[in-house]
Amino acid sequence: MTGSASELAHRLGDHAEAVCREYLSNGHRSGNHWIVGDVRNTRGRSMHVRLKANAKGPAGKWVDEATSEFGDLLDVIRESCGLIEFRDVADEARRFLNEPHPEPDAQAPGAQRHPAAARGSPDAARRLFAMSQPILGTLAERYLAGRGLLLAARERALRFHLGCYYRDLVTGETLTFPALIAAVTDLDGRITGLQRTWLDPSGNGKAQLSDPRRSLGNLLGNAIWLGLEPGAPVPVMAAGEGFETMASLRTVMPALPVAAATSANHLAGLTFPPGCRRLYIAADADAAGRNGIRRLSQRAGEAGIFAMVLRPQLGDFNDDLRHLGPRHLVARLGDQLAPEDASRFLPPG
């Protein structure tokens, strides 16, 4: 561990309980330990965080008895927030340390620093995303690969949650399933909502549910963005309804920013990024999809953006990718893109 990391970890240890209440909010204090399911803030009892230094070691050290993982509070921040680069972890730790924190004794037993987020709100979406982990090596990555979607493991919009709540809208029963979590963001990169795709724990595609995919939060005007750099101009982009449709285009054109609006109505209301001059709209076969395309094309024209519709050969572009193969999809797209975009975004040959 570098000196900077050691210093940050030591300073976090001075506020170990406050750190736990912030980033491991699904746990509770028991004596000199914070008890929680794991470092990603899952409910449970297998992970113990030492809150005060003693003969066994410094404050902030933790061990997960179920997995034999161990670490310090920087690891807690990294995993609970789904961060990858140390710079981002250090920035989040410094942000936390610069805020005032009440002494543990001044808090009611079991109290959290933040009130519970309203169900379905953008705050609830941001908290669920923070509780999830990067997809690399998870069931979510396996699910995507099974759909032919070979996305970069560091796509910032995608996370995996090991036990995401699912509520049956008919019976009211609440269950938990692993889930692919896709962040819905505005053009500044701020999470306003998300989409959950519940997965079969055995790895056999989606969970066997009546509606294994649901969205929440503020979706209108926003999208699941892949390849968007917040605030940067986006002269050429593609947009469509479904995440897997747009992820299929992203798989064969990894340099093209794409937006999945999650529904036809939300597609029609998509906010255009700065500098956009050409928009490709991925077609969907149903009537609602055609209406969304028409309305988005009209808005694009009014904004001075040239809109072009991309049409799959089968039901959607993920069907093309899985059943016809990436070479066929590339060839079909090459016939529909502007020549300069085909040479820029499609693989050679």
Rank of each mutant, 00 (worst) to 15 (best):
G301S: 13
H48G: 00
H114S: 05
G269I: 05
F96H: 07
R29D: 03
T174C: 11
V49D: 09
P178K: 14
G146A: 05
A283M: 02
A283R: 00
R299V: 01
I84L: 12
H266L: 03
D88S: 10
L279G: 09
A331D: 13
G60D: 06
N41G: 07
F272N: 04
R294Q: 12
P104R: 04
R299Q: 06
H328Q: 13
V184F: 02
D105P: 04
A152Y: 11
M47W: 09
R11D: 02
L249N: 08
D38L: 09
N26F: 11
A140K: 06
G31K: 11
N318Y: 14
A124G: 10
M246K: 14
P104I: 03
P257D: 12
I293L: 08
V89G: 00
A66M: 04
L219Q: 13
G221K: 12
G221N: 06
P312Q: 11
E99H: 06
M246E: 08
S248C: 05
S68E: 08
S248G: 03
I135C: 02
L149T: 08
A130S: 12
M253W: 10
I293H: 10
R29G: 01
S263H: 14
S263E: 09
D319V: 00
T197E: 03
I293S: 11
E340F: 11
A111S: 13
L51W: 09
G120H: 14
F272M: 06
N54A: 15
I191P: 04
P212Y: 14
M1K: 13
P339V: 08
G325S: 09
A247E: 07
M1C: 13
R213H: 04
F129V: 08
A124R: 15
A259D: 08
L180I: 04
R43W: 08
Q313P: 06
A125F: 04
L83I: 06
E22V: 02
H10G: 03
A125L: 06
L267K: 08
R196A: 04
D88W: 02
D320M: 09
D123M: 07
R290F: 02
D284E: 15
R159V: 03
A55E: 15
A145P: 01
A106S: 12
H161D: 12
R21I: 00
Q313K: 12
T262K: 09
L51R: 04
A152T: 08
Q195K: 05
A268E: 14
N318E: 14
R154A: 12
E79M: 12
A307N: 07
R327C: 00
I293D: 11
A238K: 09
S46G: 00
M237S: 12
G301F: 11
L209E: 04
L144M: 14
D123P: 08
R299L: 01
W34R: 03
F317A: 08
G3K: 10
K56A: 15
R94P: 02
L194A: 01
I181V: 04
F177A: 09
H266Y: 00
P348C: 04
S68K: 14
